[in-house]
């Protein structure tokens, strides 16, 4: 998957409106929209797109979208 597509889909999916720019360096945990429901949504989103199940412990360690991409596996993305 292209990183830009991933970002667009995630942006729409999480219904992010609180920041102007949404990029790999965006700090997820500071977003107004990043609550427990958003975490469940990310688990479902990653499962659907990459057939991989993240645990809440793994997600607790991420700060930026770059971290999320690394967690999923950089090799699964194109620039």
């Amino acid at each position: 998957m292209k990183k830009s597509d991933f970002l667009n889909e995630l942006h729409e999916f999480l219904e992010i409106e609180s920041v102007e720019s949404f990029n790999v360096n965006t700090n997820l945990i500071n977003l107004d929209e990043y609550d427990s429901l958003a975490i469940m949504s990310i688990v479902a989103f990653i499962d659907e797109k990459f057939s991989s199940k993240l645990t809440s412990n793994q997600l607790a360690g991420i700060v930026t979208i770059k971290d999320l991409i690394e967690l999923v596996g950089n090799e699964k993305f194109e620039d």
């Binding site: 427990s36 975490i39 469940m40 199940k53 993240l54 645990t55 809440s56 412990n57 607790a60």
Partner: peptide, 8 residues
């Protein structure tokens, strides 16, 4: 395992 820690 999949739930946010507080929810669990």
């Amino acid at each position: 395992l999949e739930l946010p820690t507080e929810s669990a």
